[in-house]
């Protein structure tokens, strides 16, 4: 029986009286690749912050690696890439190496560290200051930080937003490889419904509540989604990656 790495039960969250999440229940099993999609303000990042304990849900419960969130301690098992740093000061005096090292738990080795820098294409930037880098390079640095501790679960919040198309494609391939070859469980938030459908085994469409949960194939044939998007838009979303592959 696969272990649920993440599960929520009836999770609800309000911000200043405004409902952001309503009765969210879902589970992520070991080895899953879950894509969470939805429009702006649909609560995708808020859901992740509730799972990680950054925000406290008003109602419901969160279990991480089978444990209630409040008693969970093995945070090195989770690699998290935030949507954007809350307030990155351009003059923050720290190097790429220092930030990537921040993610290294007891499991990390120097070889692993170098491999990840190479994988992210930032090995030549390791002694540069974070504020001197482009947004895309900063994003790759933060992703390298999330990967350094060899996490069992990787949570990525809109990781490709600032990447060029080639790097974006490489990035998705990397997540696919991590999921398939290393068994890393992945939760990825994106607006890119068509593209994530190509990689994720499961999808959730969120708009304050879960509108859809299932595979991409189910998403494309779901009458609820047809009703939600209209058949034309649903067709475009579902065949977007056919065109990008052509």
């Amino acid at each position: 029986m696969p272990v649920n790495l993440i599960s929520t039960e009836d999770l609800s969250f309000c911000y200043n009286g405004t409902e952001v999440l309503r009765n969210i229940s879902f589970a992520v099993k070991k080895g899953d690749y879950l894509g969470i999609v939805g429009p702006n303000g649909s609560g995708k990042s808020t859901l992740i912050k509730n799972i990680l304990g950054i925000l406290q849900p008003q109602k419901g419960s969160v279990y991480v690696f089978g444990e209630p969130l409040a008693s969970f301690r093995q945070w090195a098992k989770i690699g998290y890439l935030p949507q954007r740093l809350s307030a990155l000061n351009t003059y923050f005096p720290c190097t790429v190496k220092e930030i990537v090292n921040l993610g290294s738990g007891a499991k990390a080795s120097m070889q692993n560290f170098d491999n990840i820098l190479r994988l992210m294409g930032i090995e030549h930037l390791s002694s540069r200051l974070i504020g001197e880098l482009s947004y895309g390079e900063q994003q790759r640095t933060m992703l390298a930080r999330a990967l350094t501790g060899n996490p069992d679960l990787l949570i990525l919040d809109e990781p490709t937003a600032a990447l060029d198309p080639e790097t974006r494609e490489n990035f998705y391939s990397l997540t696919h490889e991590l999921n398939h070859n290393q068994g890393t469980t992945i939760i990825l938030i994106t607006h890119d419904t068509g593209v994530i459908g190509k990689y994720a085994r499961q999808m959730i469409y969120l708009d304050k509540k879960i509108i859809f949960s299932g595979t991409f194939e189910d998403f494309c044939t779901s009458p609820e989604m047809t009703g939600f998007f209209g058949s034309g838009t649903q067709h475009i979303i579902c065949h977007q990656h056919d065109r990008s592959n052509a």
């Binding site: 990680l52 950054i54 945070w75 998290y80 935030p82 809350s86 307030a87 720290c94 921040l102």
Partner: peptide, 18 residues
């Protein structure tokens, strides 16, 4: 040191690291 560095760099990120 590691906790203080993470907290100074980004408090939300630090919280996500436990």
């Amino acid at each position: 040191y590691r906790d203080l560095f993470a907290l100074t760099f980004d408090e939300e990120l630090a919280r996500s690291m436990g």
